[in-house]
Design a binder for these strands. Sequence first.
RNA 1: GCGGAAUUGGUGAAGGGGUUAACACGGUGGAUUGUGGUUCCAUUAUGCAUCGGUUCGAAUCCGAUAUUCCGCCCCA
Length: 426
Amino acid sequence: MLQKPKGTYDIYGKRSLMMNYLKEVFSNLIDKYNASYFETPMFESSELFHRGVGETTDIVSKETYDFKDRGDRNMTLRPEGTAGIVRSFIENKLYAESLPLKAWYMGPMFRYERPQAGRYREFYQIGFECFGTYDPMMDAETISIVYNFFNLLGLKGVKVNINTLGDKESREMYHKALMDYFKPYLNELCDDCNRRFEKNPLRILDCKVDADNDFMKCAPRMTDYLNEVSREHFSLVKNYLDAMNIDYEVNSNIVRGLDYYTHTVFEVVADIKDFGSQNVLAGGGRYNNLVENIGGPSVPGVGFAIGVERLLLALEYEGLDNIEFNPVDVYIFGASENEKEYIMKLANDLRGNGFKIDVDYESKSFKNNFKRADKLNSRFVIIIGEEEVKTKILTVKNNKTKEEYKVNIDELIKFLDEKLGDFDED
RNA sequence: GCGGAAUUGGUGAAGGGGUUAACACGGUGGAUUGUGGUUCCAUUAUGCAUCGGUUCGAAUCCGAUAUUCCGCCCCA
């Protein structure tokens, strides 16, 4: 049998309800921040990601879906959302408008990885980016959006971990200090860390293999290498988070795997046992050089991305996924084949007036139809027979209370409006 | 990219070489040709991820492949 590609999944049933629900909740929330919705292509020129995400990152060096199109152009399925939004920001010259500009998106991303629970090759992210301000207020606001979103969903035990990478100058100084420090210990470090030493010595700090070594505990700390500007920035971010009563912890091991971050970086983690690394529900940070690196003017940015599948897992784990299909307002069936025309017209009119209608297409038995009405959770059932067509008095049955009403066809819409109101109060 | 475990219907699953693949839920039809949700009856995998091999005989043993899950790496 043909099956879906490894690491992908189909969206239908409860999952589609949940995803629509998440998008709606987020959309409502983010509107309060005056952000606008973006959709950018799922594939872009490969160069964009090489320049944006970073040539040396794992994501670009070994996880992208690359292909040549029929015009022999190098294309890449987007592995994350930020680069595309930045490209759009530059290409549409949005920097010429009044800044800051806030953007949000939700869509599929693609990474060629070994799948696991909460980790797919095609996966969805909800993301946010803000361009045009260096002010730490925006760092704090960005974090607060994720925090508030998760709270809105009812998620408990959400933790915000923050760190600072400092500006370019601080980062280079720290980089050098780490290399100097670890150099003598190179043969004591694990193979992975030996690779990290060249590429990104920061990552050695959160290595699980070497964590117990004594020399790890005395390693130089970022905070000691921050220049005045970086230190001030970070301390203001913390002040603003405090002002909003957001719980956070400074965790100097948060480094992030994307090259573009400067200053604030953060992760929002769930507290679920056996989730392991999948506990990281969202991550983000500030990127003051990215827009320029991609070929735009020097405009700073901050943003985050939420992993939808992981969020869904966390919601399910905490029992916050009790969502059901909206019930049908009215189920209509006929006593015989002869009423089909009448039913088509009636259903069409009612749908046009905003009611959710389903009907019997197969002229099945009464029993069958009532069973179906129950299955659809239909609030009302209307049975059409010769008598009803002739007298224009319809039999409308409340499917919960079993009460039957005789309603003139002209009064039907008013009747349903009133009676359906009762249901909403439950 | 590396290491490990798993895979039986629409779903949850039992069976670990001997011929009708248990049980439960769900689906469909009926008992009940203008009134259902209970109950009862019937039906629902010539099929056990796929392809090969061993065997008189394979869901069961062996091999390869695919997928899923777990750990590592990395990330959302």
